[in-house]
Computed example of a mutant assay.
Amino acid sequence: MKINNSNFMSEKKVYIKTKDYSISKESFILEYEPSLDMLITTPQPKDISKYYKEESYISHKDESKQFLDKIYFIVKKYTLNKKIKFISQYQNESKTLLDIGTGTGDFLNEAKRKNWTTTGIEINPIARQKAQSKDLEIFKSIEHLGDKKYNLITLWHVLEHLPNLEEQIEKLDNLLEVGGTLIIAVPNYKSYDAKYYKHHWAAFDVPRHLWHFSKNSIKILFKKKGLNIKKITPMYFDSYYVSILSEKYKNGKTNYFNAMYRGWQSNLEARRTGQYSSLIYTLQRG
């Protein structure tokens, strides 16, 4: 099922024209879906795998010699510890954790060290192999999980990549045990940095990002399954990293001073509006 099927027949309009700046250089349109307050990448590729070249896609790497990638890994190491601390407040006796889009498995590896019973889903074969080499239980798809239920399910910048969005949300709902928690981190297209960089905003990341969410989007989509937002948490570092990439897309070269300023300004503006570059949504039933 596609999100823009007969269930959502409200009139759409072109919101912005952008392109894949990092790999294919192909152009795409973001259509606004008013019933969900969401942007939809159009067209959506039938074969998305070619847009995830291993040498180009950072979350499928364990290391890199490029300067910008080194910044990514420094921040990643810091945020891993923050994520583990964040999820600890939602553990129960079972401490069962499912991470969807686990990449090379660093988050699950840290969670396992903290005595979580971990399972991961990673569709990319090379990233999956790297995660499995860390003695982690990683599967190719949700279908391999059977009837298992989990205390905690996490998607760290993954939901925006998943095709057939409503079907994916249905699957997440079925995998969550009674009293369980769903944690979703996604970019926020209503942030200051998104509005400033416009079609150069790196977090659009078309066509790998198929959906572009607002707070309303998440609320509406998950409320249909009885899952309600209990907490929204900012991801402060995202505005800086996204601004670094956006500067490069906009000007053809990276201006770190401008990027740091825009990232700081985005967080400052968000203190008033709540519209941070990326947000973590904690959802529970009822």
Rank of each mutant, 00 (worst) to 15 (best):
M1N: 04
M9H: 15
E11G: 04
K13M: 09
I16E: 03
T18L: 07
D20M: 10
S24M: 07
K25E: 15
S27T: 06
I29S: 12
E33P: 14
P34Q: 03
P34K: 06
S35E: 05
L36W: 08
T41R: 09
T41M: 07
T41Q: 00
T42M: 09
T42R: 06
Y52S: 03
K53D: 11
K53V: 07
H60I: 05
D62W: 11
S64H: 09
L68S: 09
Y72K: 00
F73G: 01
K76I: 07
K77A: 02
T79N: 10
L80F: 15
L80I: 13
I84N: 09
Y90V: 14
Y90I: 12
N92L: 08
E93F: 02
E93H: 11
S94T: 03
S94Q: 10
L97R: 08
L98R: 00
L98W: 06
I100M: 03
D106H: 11
N115G: 01
W116N: 01
T119L: 06
G120A: 10
I123L: 13
P125F: 13
R128L: 10
S133H: 04
I138P: 00
S141P: 03
H144E: 14
K149T: 04
L152D: 04
V158S: 07
L159G: 08
L162D: 03
N164T: 10
L165Y: 02
I169C: 07
L175M: 15
T181F: 12
I184L: 11
A185P: 09
S191H: 09
Y192H: 02
K198Q: 05
F204Y: 03
V206T: 09
R208Y: 04
R208T: 07
F213K: 05
S217K: 07
K223R: 12
N228W: 09
N228S: 01
I229R: 06
M235G: 01
Y236K: 10
S239I: 06
S243A: 12
I244N: 02
K250G: 12
N251T: 05
G252P: 05
K253I: 03
N258A: 00
A259S: 12
A259C: 09
A259T: 11
Y261V: 15
R262K: 15
S266G: 08
S266N: 01
N267S: 02
N267P: 01
Y276P: 02
T282G: 01
Q284G: 00
G286W: 02
